[in-house]
Amino acid sequence: MWTILFAPAALALPPMEVAIEVGSLHNGDSAYDVVSDEDIVTSVGLRGGIAVAGPLHVVVGWHRASQGASVFAGETAFQSAYQANEWTGGLKGVWHLHDVIQPYVSAQALVLQGAFKFDGDASDDDNIDQLVERAVHPGGMATLGACATVPLPDWPAQPALWLEGGIAGVSRATYGNFGDMAAGGFIFRAGAGVQF
């Protein structure tokens, strides 16, 4: 761990950042109602970035969303689940306002790799009513955010918090026989990590 934190300074690498994040992506498509009463896809994930030229950073990220519900269909019920990987990558422009607060904007490609699952008997790992359909949605996101750091001049890395919001959208994609879904709207990300 310490080796990693000290590596950029020791090797004279450009400034980097890593963070653990939580996030949400608006999904007002009625298809998502099969797993949630809310129109929000919550997720957890990781993000990393590296400065490439002046205020410009390359950022990449991965989020995992996992939402499920008991579906009451008339007098009987079954279980539904939506599990997705949200892959992001793009550029971030940072304004070094001062040592603590650094606003930024970012524009990233977003690829949503989703799976809808239906299980007729959640208590049985192996039953005939286990169906899954997958789809990949390409899209993008643009956010406005700020990073708050705690300056520790003698330390190789500074703790940092990120908060950003913006808009995102992914294309409509077909989940086999289940139907199709698109997602998009407000996106929110918050993270905690280090800059070094």
């Binding site: 099969v34 957890v44 995992r64 579906v71 599990q83 959640a122």
Partner: peptide, 24 residues
Amino acid sequence: VLLLAACRGWGNLPDQDNVYTGPL
């Protein structure tokens, strides 16, 4: 924890909500 969340399989699907519809 993140890895486990990513690998949830049959019999261990997430179940945070109840949704209602008519008979399929």
